[in-house]
Structure formats: C-alpha cells, structure tokens
Design a protein around this nucleic acid. Sequence first.
RNA 1: GGGCGCGUAGCUCAGCUGGAUAGAGCACCUCCCUUCUAAGGAGGCGGUCCUAGGUUCGAAUCCUAGCGCGCUCACCA
Length: 594
Amino acid sequence: MKKIEDIIIQGIRDALSGTLNIVVEDKFLALQKTKKEFEGSLTLVVFPFVKQAKMAPEKLANILGEVLVDSVEEIDSFNVVKGFLNLVISAAYWKNALEYISDTEQYGFSKPNSKPHCMVEYSSPNTNKPLHLGHLRNNFLGYSVSEIRKANGHEVTKVQIINDRGIHICKSMQAWISSGLEETPESTGMKGDKLVGKYYVEFDKQYKKEIAELIGEGQDKGEAERNASSIEAARELLVKWESKDPEVYALWEKMNQWVYDGFEKTYDDMGVDFDRIYYESETYLLGKSVVMDGLASGVFEQEDDGSIWIDLTAEGLDKKILLRSDGTAVYMTQDIGTAIKRFEEFPSLKELVYIVGNEQDYHFRVLFLILKKLGYVWASDCYHLSYGMVDLPEGKMKSREGTVVDADDLMLQMSETAKEITEELGKLEGMEESEKNELYRMIGMGALKYYLLKVDPKKRLLFNPNESIDFNGNTGPFIQYTYARMQSLMSRYGKAIPNVSHDAGCNSSELALIELLYDFPEIISNASDGYSPALLANYLFSLAKTFNSFYQSSNIMKETDGDIQGNRMVLVQVTAGVIKRGMKLLGVGVPDRM
RNA sequence: GGGCGCGUAGCUCAGCUGGAUAGAGCACCUCCCUUCUAAGGAGGCGGUCCUAGGUUCGAAUCCUAGCGCGCUCACCA
C-alpha cells in the first residue's frame, strides 16, 4: 500500500514545479501531523519557500491547497492557518488503509532476519549480590530492545556476560569460610544468590570493623583498608584462584553455581532469556593476550613496574590501565577479549549493543577507542546504550543503608498488589484459582515493566517504592484492561469478523483510531533504530486511549447498521492485534479478561 | 578542577532531525454505570519550557555563557 505521505509529497512537488514553477529542496517538503485543534491529518508548513514563490504564506498555502485537492484523489479538502496548510485525507483512503492493516499478517513488523545481525548484551551481573531494581531496568530494556529489533527485521543474538571472577566473589567466599557454618541453599532454604549476597554483606561488616580497629590503633585510613585481615584473606583467595588452587577453585565453582541457580529463577520470573552466556573467567585470558599483542605492536606502553597502559591524552581522554603490574587483568582487559571473541564467534555480526548504565560512559568510550586503535574495523559497530540510573526519592540505592530494592521482592510485591486491586474490583467470577494467580502475575509484571520502560532509556528514572506503581492512567494495566475489553467485545460479537465495508461511513473517533494504527510500522522502526522501547510504550498508551475514546463514543453491539458494526469490529480486532504484539515486544502479556 | 549528561505543570514524564495557542498521566475539582468490563470516558484547574544572550520568518528544540543537579576521571567492577 502506498503511503499517504509519499502520495502527497509527490503531489506537492508536482504542484510546485507546475503551477508555481519553483523547485524546492526535499528537506522542506516534510509533512507533519496536524495538531488536534485543527481540521485535517497532515500539515505542510509553507514558510520555508515563500521567498522562492514570492507570495504571502497564506496565499501560497491556499493555492497549493486548491491544486492538491484537484490533483490528489486522496485529499478531500484543506484549510489554511497562517503558513500552515492542513490537509484532510479522504475516508476512502483510511478505509483502504484499515483493510490493508487487517489483511496484513504481522502488520508493522518487517520480514524476520531481513536486516543486519545484531548482538545485544544485557544484564551482566556480578556474582556476589542478588539482582536489584537497577538490574530490572537493565533486563527489561535489553529484552525489549532485542525483541523490537527482531520485529524490525534484524537477526538478534541476546547475550550476557557474567562477572564471575574477581575480588568481589572472593569476599563472599572469605566470609563463608570464616563463618565455619558450611551453609548451603539447601541447609538454609535460601535462594543461592541471596545466600552468597548475605556473606558479601557479612564480609563488609567485618571488614569495616577491622578498619575501625586499625584506625584506632593509629593507622591511617588507606593503610587500614589495605591491612585489614579479612581483605588480606580475600586477596589471598584471589591469588589462589588465579593459580587454580583446587580447594579454592572448587568453592568458587560451588558458590557461583548457587548464584546461577538463584539468578535463573529471577530471570525466569522476569521473563527474559539469553541465546549465549559469556563468563569473564573464560574471556579475560584472551583479553590479556590481545593486550600483550598490542604492547608488541606499540599501541600500548609498559611502565617500569610492569603495568600496561594506553595513552589517550591526545584524544582528550586520560591514560588507562589495561594490565596490573602483577599481570592480572582489569575489567577493560576482559571487555576487549569478550568483544573480539564475539565477532569471531559470529562472523555475520554487524552490530554489538551494550545495555549498560551511564555511569560507564567513559569506560565504553575508552573501550571502543582501544578496539579501533587495535585495528578492529568493527569497533565502529559497537554501541553503548547508556541508560540512566534508577534513583529512589532519597537518591541512589545504597546497600549500606539498606535501601536497595531487591528484584525478587519487588516482583512478588507487584503481583500481590495486582491481586488486591483485582479482588477489590471483583470481576473474575468463575475463574480458576491457578488462572487467577497467573493473571495477577501478568498484571503486576505488566505494571512494573511498563513503568520501567515508558521512560526514555537515556534518562534517569525515579522510583518511589512507597507510592509504588500505579495501575491507572499511563500504565501497563491500563493497556491490558483495554485489551481485555476488546476480547470481551469479540466474544460478544460471536461471529467471524467481516471484511472492511467501503460503503459504511466513518466517524471521527474511528478515523482517529485508523490513523494511529497506520503509524505502527513507523513506530517499530523508530523504536528499533533509536533503541527505545519508550517510543513503543507511549504509542501503545495513546492507542489504548484512542480506542477507549472510540469505545465510549461508538457503541458497537447496539449498532444496527451491519456494515458500520462490521467495520468497528475490524477495528477492534486490528487494534487488539497491534496492542498484543506491541506489548509482547515490551515483554508484557495481555489477558482476555481482568 | 577536566570530560560527559540532565534541567518542561505540585509530582512523574512526552515533545523525532527548529514550526501553529507547549502535551499526557498522577494529584485536585465537575459530570457520565437500569447502555458492549468505571483498572474507563467527557471537561476544568495548573507552565517566565533553569537564567541571560545569539542564529532564524519562526527556538522548549540549534549555538555561547552562567546557575543548579547527576555521573565520571582507580593497579574497582
């Protein structure tokens, strides 16, 4: 189906070159949506070429309008306000559009795997702590960005990297050992990640205590932090781990496994998945060897103490360490190795997207620059989707102050809230208990995911745990509710949805809905190119709102004209389809009733 | 201090590569369930778009400076 914008632009171009005998640059020939308070669907701003036309804006707009109405079949009428030419598109065109939408399978989506292969890295947790609210935003974003890109035709590989080695996990190990309790998830009934996290907290407590004691004995802060016996023990574990001391390695494997088991449950609850998992312990050695190669080729330089650096001062950045003097790897080392490994493993890869918080902006600038300097041409295909931190009303989440919002707790709480609200409304008569529970989860998770996804990823996000999350207004449940209403209409209608009738008239609320549905493909494309589930979320909200308005103003079941009723049912069906598939891209399910 | 980012209604946010009287949701106030699910709809109240300059026919949007906030500049991750 030919896009109305293209038809009109062509018409305008013809009118300009014909009647007015001027040629206008393409960039000025952009149509915009007509503002609500004016009549029409699309608007041309004529200011940019009044000079060329040597005419007052209004006169020019009127002339163009008249020519367009005559020459372009799809334009019914026009009106001019100052230099704005508002065009009214014929109902016939919109009915054709509706028919096209209704007849098009997977309307709005592009052919699978028709666009470049893209890898999306998200989640990327450390293995010493359970997942929290920040991870939720990360995971929901990563999943949704991936699904949106798929819908837009990209081949997508979802990956995560697990920071499974390093001093952090050694801290948990050290606290576990020194407790002497031999606690396991089985013996305590705790989720594995929670148990390991508990020991991380305990380590920190003990460590702080020792520091205070050492300071009391007259050491300065830096000394005390270095000399505390627990950190020395943890450091020793790390050294032993690197030399693959069997006992330490076994404990490391055991405790990491506990964490993985715990994470798996959390990922399952989140509804996210991965095609490939990378472990830092598997990639840091490659990183190290690449750094050594870079040293040999002169990209990097070595200090007297043996540490290896890159000097980026010429690029306006600083010097960055790539390998410690004792030869051990830093974060950057393994990230270099991991990126290379990925492009080797997937030769078709055309893009690597990192979903990582904006606190690491600098890290990724440096990483991409290093890869470029090392001569990897794909360095420019790497993109850091830098999302804003999730803040609480009192500021950052701080584990020390116990303000970290745990992912498992929050998800559970959302389902419970959904249950309370649903029971209060009491609309689930006759539904099975298990079905109800599934619904509560769907609504609770819908609220949570939508809440975290509706904001532009790049912006910081404020989360107020007390006010929690709304179920009214611009929310997931609002959209789910609208969908449930549509399902109710479909079952009430009780017969097959007919084809679009071209004879039936269209009221304004129907037209508004068709026009929005018409935008869906462009929204998918924009959300994909801009890595922004928020664009899709806000679109779905306005679609739901527009539907509700239509629902309220145009009674369907009571409509006596069969053609009109049929067209309305087509609208219901098509809107439901767009909402369902759109929400799925956000990772949110929609219920048949609620 | 250097670098990066942000500052729109009481609150949370939309406003894409400049376009009309700056929009939603929440909160507050009016109406609308003997009518397809009121988790809904219709309307009202509410804004010097941080400030000051500049570019432009036109600036919330682009440029410069200032103010405020955040992140970052580790042999941490």
